[in-house]
Simulated assay, not measured.
Amino acid sequence: MAKKKSVEKKKAVDFSLLMTTLILVFIGIIMVFSSSWPEAMQDFGNGYYFLKKQIIAATIGLFGMLVCMNIDYKVWRKYSTLIYIVALILGALIFTPLGITLKGARRWINLGFTTFMPSDAIKIGSIIFFANFLANKKKDISTIRQGTIPALIVIGISCGAIYVQKDLGTTLTLAGTMMSMFFIAGMNLYHLIFMAIGAVGLGVLALSGEHNAYRRNRITAFRDPFAYKLDIGWQAVQSLYALGSGGLFGLGLGKSRQKFFYIPESYNDFIFSIIGEELGFLGTLTVILLFLLLVWRGIRIALSINDTFGCYLATGITALITIQTIIHIAVVTSSIPTTGITLPLISYGGTSLMVYMSAIGILLNISRHANLDRS
Rank of each mutant, 00 (worst) to 15 (best):
I124P: 11
A236N: 05
K74N: 13
G350Y: 02
I336C: 05
L174A: 04
L174Q: 04
I232C: 00
F226N: 13
D120K: 01
T286V: 13
F44E: 11
G361S: 10
I360F: 05
I109K: 02
G147V: 10
L353H: 06
L111F: 13
V355R: 07
Y190P: 09
N136K: 14
L343D: 06
G276F: 03
F50C: 06
N365T: 12
M1D: 06
P225L: 06
M179E: 04
T318K: 05
A175W: 10
R106P: 00
Q258T: 11
G64R: 04
T114W: 04
S119E: 10
F291W: 12
L320D: 13
F260P: 08
F260Y: 15
R368P: 11
G233T: 11
T143K: 06
M19D: 01
V355N: 10
Y79S: 06
I362C: 03
N136T: 12
L285Q: 04
Y241F: 13
K5A: 14
S80H: 11
D224L: 00
I288N: 03
G198H: 00
M181E: 14
G99E: 11
L230E: 15
F182W: 10
L152N: 08
Y49Q: 07
S239R: 04
I323F: 09
K74I: 10
K53M: 07
F26K: 01
D373M: 04
A227T: 14
L343H: 06
I94W: 03
T20L: 05
I305Y: 01
S347K: 07
G276W: 03
I329E: 02
Y190D: 03
M65G: 09
S304K: 02
T148F: 15
I94V: 15
L82F: 12
N268C: 08
M31D: 03
F116Y: 12
M195R: 00
H369E: 13
